[in-house]
Structures are given as structure tokens and as C-alpha cells.
């Protein structure tokens, strides 16, 4: 117990004194995860909307696969992206392995199924209510998709945040494609894993605290946005 308290004290001292490397690790974490979520939303939300409004043969199978992919193990995604980006891989010439870009790519792949899968559920519920009315107004599938994204935007914030939470918290994928290089690709989760195994518990704990505070505050803001929107728009 005293170890933990000791570590906590050192961790808060570290954060208060604004340790340089610590903040650059935090900044990189945020940059990678936010970029990945943005890309995943750009791809995932239209995909979700399209799945919600269209009816084609094999649609149910696509939905099942998508739902299964929500639980994709990060290390496997990391491995696949690693193979794609490694010198001998198909995208090897891009020279992206062990860069933040590679980490963004891996996390994007990891969260697209989450955003698309949860988003489809949200939009399909709304579509159940809207379908007859919108068809009556002569909507095309393409128009319906954008209408659904706009009309469920507050619920979709929660969906996107679930993706962000996953991105911030995962360690396997960024470790494999990023390599945890000090000052280049070291993010909070990989640093925590490394410092723990090195025995530098205060730094690990400090990073852990920052991570938790960040995730909590992002979710609190989103919750507030959602609730106030619900009160306003019904």
C-alpha cells in the first residue's frame, strides 16, 4: 500500500512540475487517437448509415461480421498493419513503419468496426421510425443516409466516443506498428507498459492517472452535450 501512495505522490509531483517528456507523450497519444477517431468516423458513419437504409442480399451477414469485428484484438490489427507496412510488405515503399502515421492507421482499422457497428444500430432504430415518412417524401437511399447521420448526431457522439475510448486505451496495436520509440512513437499506454516492466512505478502511475482523467473528462463533456441536446430537441 505504501508503495502505491509513494508512487502517487511522486506522480503528482511529476505532473505539477510539468515534466517535458511526459507532456510530449500525452500530446502524441491524443494526436494519434483523435486522428484515428476522425478517420474512423469519416469512413464508419456513412457505412453505418448505408447499412441501416439499404436492403440487399447478404446484408445480415455483413452486419454479423461487423459486430464480430468490434471485438478485434488490437495485437492482431497491429500485426496485420505491420505486415502491410514492413519493408517486404505491399505498402513497404511508403516507409511508414514505426511512425505516428502507422499508429493512426492501425487504430483507425481497429475503431472503424466500432463506429460502424454501434452507429448502424443507432441509425437503424431511427430508420424504423422514419422510413415510411421519408419514402413517402421520395427520399433516395443516399439522401436518407445523410438525414439519419444528421438526425442522430447526438447519439452518434457517444458512438464516436466509444471508439475514442478504445483508441486511447489500447496498447497492442500501437506497440507493434509504432515500436515505442522514445520521442517519436511513445504514447501513454506503451510508456506505462514499459515503465512498469522497468520498475519506474511513479511515472507509470502518473501516466495512468492522466489517461484516466482524460478519458473521464471527454466522456463527461459528451454526456453533457447529449443530455442538453435531448432536452432541447426531444
Amino acid at each position: 500500500m505504501s508503495d502505491i501512495l509513494n508512487a502517487l505522490a511522486q506522480a503528482s509531483a511529476l505532473m505539477v512540475h510539468g515534466d517535458g517528456p511526459l507532456w510530449s507523450i500525452i500530446a502524441l497519444s491524443m494526436r494519434v487517437s483523435f486522428c484515428a477517431v476522425l478517420l474512423a468516423a469519416i469512413v464508419g458513419l456513412p457505412l453505418a448509415g448505408w447499412l441501416a437504409v439499404s436492403r440487399f442480399w447478404g446484408r445480415q451477414s455483413v452486419v454479423t461480421v461487423l459486430n464480430a469485428l468490434m471485438g478485434l484484438p488490437p495485437v492482431v490489427v497491429g500485426l496485420v498493419v505491420y505486415l502491410l507496412l514492413s519493408r517486404a510488405g505491399p505498402l513497404g515503399s511508403w516507409g511508414l513503419l514505426f511512425t505516428p502515421t502507422a499508429m493512426i492507421m492501425a487504430q483507425t482499422v481497429l475503431i472503424i468496426p466500432i463506429v460502424a457497428g454501434l452507429g448502424r444500430q443507432v441509425m437503424e432504430d431511427a430508420w424504423g421510425e422514419y422510413e415510411e415518412q421519408l419514402r413517402s417524401l421520395g427520399v433516395t437511399n443516399f439522401q436518407a443516409l445523410w438525414t439519419l447521420i444528421w438526425d442522430t448526431r447526438f447519439a452518434l457522439i457517444t458512438v464516436v466516443l466509444a471508439g475514442l475510448g478504445r483508441a486511447c486505451a489500447e496498447v497492442g496495436a500501437v506497440m507493434i506498428v509504432g515500436g515505442n520509440i522514445d520521442g517519436v512513437t511513445r504514447v501513454m499506454t506503451t510508456a506505462i507498459a514499459m515503465e512498469t516492466s522497468k520498475g519506474d512505478l511513479p511515472l507509470a502511475l502518473g501516466l495512468g492517472l492522466v489517461l484516466i482523467v482524460l478519458v473521464l473528462s471527454v466522456n463527461a463533456i459528451a454526456q453533457w452535450v447529449k443530455l442538453s441536446a435531448q432536452r432541447r430537441y426531444g
Binding site: 422514419y130 415518412q133 417524401l137 421520395g138 439522401q143 438525414t147 430537441y233 426531444g234
Partner: peptide, 26 residues
């Protein structure tokens, strides 16, 4: 031709925007 249903289906927008949306589609 247009149709009004038993339960009104309201889009999550203002009353005015519900109408301009329908007009925009046509």
C-alpha cells in the same frame, strides 16, 4: 401526392426545418 400517417413522424429539427426538408427533397 403526399401522405400523413396515424402517428406523426417528426424529424429531429425545428418545425420549420421539417417542412423545408420535405420541400428540399422535391
Amino acid at each position: 401526392q403526399a401522405m400523413v400517417f396515424q402517428r406523426p413522424v417528426m424529424l429531429r429539427r425545428s418545425a420549420l426545418a421539417n417542412i423545408t426538408y420535405a420541400l428540399g427533397l422535391s
